[in-house]
Design a protein around this nucleic acid. Structure first.
Length: 315
DNA sequence: CCTGTCAAGCGGTTGC
DNA sequence: GCAACCGCTTGACAGG
């Protein structure tokens, strides 16, 4: 934190080149006298000097204005307020002070005001505005970070969708082969055991063709999966568990940020996806809402694409 | 003339 | 109740 006392000399050093004509005599009371920050464009308000009077007027006329006699002085005090920017040096010093501490204690405010030749209220206003600007920039940074995170997750998600579609096609293909095998077996058994009840293919009877893609996962036992799965899956893939589904994909709301091909996703799946794909790190707290509670490792989806527990949820 | 920036105004909120 | 703060807005000003 920058002590106010140390600032005066720094300011003097910084601005010893800047000399400003004295203000109108009637204003002298409000000035801190020798401050080198009384730049030509500095403006202070009567408001603080005359408490309660909201009419504000500049203490200083810009240096490029002529100052000729009482008429001008009269005009000066009756002109509507003209806003004047703080000098570069004033702003520099305020910036340094802001970097040290973006909150303004009363003591520091009065010291800064004295050092800079400003009204304390001006210093307070400058800090208010500066905090607002800082917040705006921070929001922009956060937005950019969110955007980058979103793009990354989106591309990951798209890749996974593509992969899932490929796998689904492969499963369909293998199911067709199973059906063919079943029919062959049925015909051979019919010929050899014509007196017995006909073999019933569990898959063919329980799943209609147009619903083949919606076969509930429990009908597909892990060993079945292992037997039909492609070499895509490592047979030593570590953790197939029945609990895998629920632990990875928690129920959630339907605030889904993406607009992917959702034609074959159930609402629950979409919700789960939204939870999985939008972790807390990119979930700023929304007004009146709570943070979503994503899986702890959801930044990488919390699972490997090869994990059967993962790919099973979509079938 | 348009637009961006900034000091300041104003109303609402909060903490003491 | 008051002071400090915040969000939003206004008005002056500068630069393209």
């Amino acid at each position: 934190m920058m002590a106010g006392g140390a600032s005066a000399s720094a300011i003097t050093t910084l601005l010893q080149h800047q000399r400003v004509p004295p203000p109108p005599s009637s204003d002298a009371f409000f000035l801190s006298g020798s401050s080198p920050f009384l730049g030509p464009r500095a403006m202070v308000s009567f408001e603080d000097a005359h408490r309660g009077n909201r009419l504000s007027r500049p203490f200083f006329r810009p240096i490029d204005h002529d100052e000729n006699g009482e008429d001008d002085l009269e005009d000066y005090f009756h002109q509507p307020e003209k806003k004047r920017r703080l000098t570069v040096e004033q702003v520099q010093f305020l910036e340094k002070s802001f970097e040290a501490e973006n909150k303004l204690e009363p003591d520091r405010k009065t010291q800064l005001a004295k050092d800079l030749g400003l009204q304390p209220r001006q210093v307070a206003i400058w800090f208010q505005n500066r905090r607002a600007r800082w917040k705006t920039k921070q929001l922009e940074k956060d937005y950019e970070a969110l955007q980058a995170s979103y793009n990354s997750l989106k591309s990951d998600y798209d890749a996974l969708v593509q992969e899932r579609n490929d796998l689904k096609a492969e499963v369909l293909n293998l199911k067709d082969k199973l059906l063919d095998k079943g029919k062959e077996k049925e015909s051979s058994e019919l010929s050899s055991k014509s007196s017995q009840a006909p073999f019933q293919n569990p898959i063919a009877d329980s799943v209609s063709e147009d619903e083949v893609s919606r076969v509930p996962f429990p009908t597909c036992r892990p060993e079945d999966i292992c037997s039909v799965k492609s070499d895509m899956f490592d047979s030593e893939s570590p953790h197939y568990t029945d609990a895998g589904h629920s632990s990875l994909l928690e129920p959630g709301d339907s605030s889904y940020a993406f607009e992917p091909d959702q034609s074959d996703l159930s609402q629950d799946e979409e919700d789960n996806l939204s939870k999985t794909l939008l972790p807390a790190c990119i979930y700023p707290k929304l007004e009146g809402g709570d943070y979503a509670v994503p899986p702890a490792n959801s930044c990488n989806f919390g699972f490997h694409a090869e994990d059967p527990a993962f790919w099973s949820w979509s079938y």
